[in-house]
């Protein structure tokens, strides 16, 4: 339950930042926090108190945590990093044309 609570708080915090903050970089940070919340939740829920899913050479213990969510989260983290980089690039470019990163002053983002 605690994990779900932390997940909800972080996810809504991120969504709040994306919707109500005006600074574009803050909005990207909000997006990052949303992603972090989801990934944290996936890993926290998939932890069943067993060991890391890596075999030791000499002791073949076979009670592992579920490795699938970890693999999926890894994919998600990397995709998230590339989308963040792309978004920041757009913001640099926009700042060059509009001289601001305040979304209130950019009527194109507000209609």
């Amino acid at each position: 339950m605690l994990h779900h609570l932390v997940f909800t708080v972080l996810f809504l915090l991120g969504l709040y930042t994306v919707i109500y903050k005006n600074n574009l970089i803050k909005m990207v940070i909000g997006l990052n926090i949303m992603e972090i919340a989801v990934f944290f939740w996936v890993i926290a829920v998939s932890d069943t108190g067993k060991s890391v899913p890596i075999y030791h050479l000499n002791k073949f213990a076979a009670s592992f945590n579920d490795p699938v969510p970890q693999a999926l989260t890894l994919t998600g983290i990397i995709i998230g990093a590339s989308t963040t980089a792309l978004l920041l690039t757009f913001i640099i470019e926009l700042n060059k044309f509009a001289d601001t990163i305040d979304s209130n002053k950019l009527e194109g983002l507000n209609e």
Binding site: I25, I43, D47, N65, Q70, A71, I77, I78, T89, I91
Partner: peptide, 26 residues
């Protein structure tokens, strides 16, 4: 939570790369 691979990725990407990219953008 016993997720070593994800921890390494988060350390490298979240704390390292993302910070560098954000800083250069700012």
């Amino acid at each position: 939570y016993q997720a070593a691979d994800v921890a390494l990725a988060e350390a490298v990407i979240g704390a390292g790369l993302n910070t560098a990219i954000y800083m250069s953008a700012i």
